[in-house]
């Protein structure tokens, strides 16, 4: 299930502005890789290159390669729509579908992909809601609107929804930045559980969060991958001066 990812000379530019400038990174399966760096350093742009979300931005140009397992996801013949069932994404702001129920949010994509039907759908809903640690809170109101949930619950619903299409990799773009501390803690505990089965890449502004949840940390600065290694090493003994300056709060 959980797959590895590799990027080679990955560049993303918007017109003349090169937001990611040639990044080589190896992402280990069943681990959490955190991407940190100051605003505008290209971390979100990098993350969105991993499931080809830039395909929907006409001005964006991507070059280099991204491998999912052994497959180059930018090669001819790779369908970005199909790819995204293997590389899921959770966004900064919770974005459940307001017209659908809690259950409907989860079953929407699996139904379209023919992954489950009838009773299987009920089992799927329960399974992913349990994985997202939301089942006990919503099991009696699955037919209520997704917008009736709190912000933190909505974000966990979005995680459950992403898990329902059975991706091997889950990309998370500052998933807790719009949430309060309690909800943030729940998301972090959830990430810790999910890495047993999934490969997780998380972009975060919060360095304590990176230190708490991740196994590997990548520090980006102005589109370059400055430092990448095991989280303990990056935080306690950074090789690069820029990394040290950033994590000790001298800039950012």
């Amino acid at each position: 299930m959980a797959e590895s990812m590799r990027t080679r000379a990955l560049k993303v530019s918007f017109g003349k502005n090169e937001a990611v400038r040639g990044v080589d990174m190896d992402i280990e399966p069943r681990s959490v890789t955190a991407i940190i760096g100051p605003s505008g350093c290209g971390k979100t742009t990098f993350l969105r290159a991993l499931n080809r979300m830039h395909d929907h931005t006409p001005a964006a140009r991507v070059s280099g390669s991204v491998f999912l397992g052994e497959e180059d996801i930018y090669a001819n013949g790779i369908n970005p729509v199909e790819l995204r069932t293997r590389v899921g994404m959770v966004f900064q702001r919770p974005n459940p579908f307001p017209t659908m129920s809690i259950r409907g949010n989860i079953t929407f994509a699996p139904k379209r992909h023919g992954l489950a039907r009838g009773r299987e759908l009920d089992e799927l809903v329960e399974r992913v809601l349990r994985q997202a640690a939301l089942w006990d809170e919503v099991k009696d109101r699955l037919d209520h609107s997704a917008t009736s949930l709190s912000g933190g619950q909505q974000q966990r619903l979005c995680i459950a929804r992403a898990l329902a299409v059975r991706p091997g990799v889950l990309l998370m773009d500052e998933p807790a930045s719009a949430l309060d501390p309690t909800a943030t803690q729940k998301i972090e505990e959830l990430i810790y559980e999910l890495k047993k089965e999934y490969t997780i890449v998380i972009v975060t502004h919060n360095m304590q969060q990176a230190a708490r949840v991740s196994d590997y940390t990548a520090f980006f600065y102005i589109g370059d991958l400055v430092e990448f290694g095991e989280t303990d090493a990056v935080f306690t003994n950074p090789r690069e001066e820029q990394t040290e300056a950033y994590i000790t709060g001298r800039f950012g």
């Binding site: 499931n51 979300m53 974005n95 579908f97 994509a109």
Partner: peptide
């Protein structure tokens, strides 16, 4: 973000428009 949420689930453009955007 509603379109992106749907794309990120591997849903293509037509069902995203008809099932997510139009109902909203």
């Amino acid at each position: 973000d509603q379109r992106e949420a749907s794309f990120a689930l591997g849903v293509s453009e037509a069902p995203t428009t008809l099932r997510v955007i139009l109902p909203a």
